[in-house]
C-alpha cells in the first residue's frame, strides 16, 4: 500500500518541470508560440537586436506603483546590460487596468509621443511623476513639462484626432488575455519559442541570474 502511495507523487514529479528554461511552464494556460510570431505593437516600443536569443515583453500600466518600480529600477540596468549588448530584445506592452482612472489617457499620450519619436522621454516622465498626475489627472500638463511646445502640440493633435492611437493598446490587451495576464507588471520571457509569464515586479539581481542561466544554456 505504501509503495503504491509513493508511486503517485513520483509519477506527478516526472511530469513536473525541472530546468527553468525548458520545462512545460504554463503549458496548459499559455499556448506555445514562436518568438518571431509575437505581434509587435509599434517599433518605438521595441528595442534591442532582432537576433537576440531572448525577448522580454513587459506589460505595464502607467498608474500602477509596482510598474513604476519596475520601470525605474529594473529596466535601466536590463537595457544597459542585456539590451544594449544584444542579448535581449525588450518590448513594452500596454495593459491599462480598468480600476485606474487616468491610465488610459496616459497611455494615449505616451503612444502619441512615440509617433513623433519621444516615447522613452514621455513614458519616463509619466512613471516618474506618477504620484502627482494619478491624483490630479493632469496628464497633459505633466507631459508638457518635458516636450517643447511644438512637439507637445503634435502630441495633443494625435491624442485628439488619431483614431488608430488605441490600436496598439487593443492589440496588447488581446495579447495579455492570451498570456492569461491578471496583474501588472508582468514580464513574459520568450526563449526558443516558449513564453514564460512572470507576474509581479522582478528584482533585477534575480532577473539577471535567471537570464544568465538561460543564455548559458544557449
Amino acid at each position: 500500500m505504501r509503495s503504491l502511495l509513493l508511486l503517485l507523487p513520483a509519477a506527478l514529479l516526472m511530469t513536473a518541470q525541472t530546468p527553468p528554461s525548458t520545462g512545460p511552464t504554463h503549458k496548459k494556460s499559455i499556448p506555445e508560440r514562436k518568438a518571431a510570431a509575437v505581434p509587435v505593437a509599434k517599433n518605438f516600443k521595441l528595442s534591442g537586436s532582432p537576433s537576440a536569443p531572448i525577448t522580454v515583453e513587459v506589460y505595464t500600466d502607467y498608474e500602477c506603483p509596482s510598474c513604476r518600480t519596475l520601470y525605474m529600477d529594473v529596466l535601466p540596468p536590463l537595457e544597459a546590460q542585456y539590451v544594449a549588448t544584444g542579448k535581449v530584445q525588450l518590448l513594452h506592452r500596454d495593459f491599462p487596468l480598468s480600476q485606474h482612472q487616468f491610465s488610459r489617457i496616459a497611455t494615449k499620450y505616451a503612444n502619441a509621443a512615440g509617433q513623433i519619436g519621444r516615447y522613452e522621454l514621455v513614458a519616463n516622465q509619466l512613471f516618474k511623476t506618477q504620484a502627482d498626475w494619478s491624483q490630479n489627472g493632469n496628464v497633459d500638463g505633466t507631459v508638457a513639462k518635458v516636450l517643447p511646445p511644438g512637439e507637445m502640440q503634435k502630441v495633443r493633435d494625435l491624442v485628439k484626432n488619431d483614431t488608430h492611437l488605441d490600436d496598439t493598446v487593443t492589440a496588447d490587451l488581446a495579447m495579455g488575455a492570451r498570456d492569461n495576464l491578471n496583474q501588472t507588471p508582468t514580464m513574459v520571457i520568450v526563449n526558443k519559442g516558449k513564453r514564460q509569464k512572470i507576474d509581479g515586479a522582478v528584482p533585477f539581481n534575480i532577473l539577471k541570474s535567471y537570464l544568465d542561466q538561460m543564455l548559458a544554456k544557449g
Partner: peptide
C-alpha cells in the same frame, strides 16, 4: 511547474 523566478518574485 513554473519558473523558479516566479516563486522568487
Amino acid at each position: 511547474r513554473e519558473p523558479w523566478l516566479q516563486f522568487a518574485v
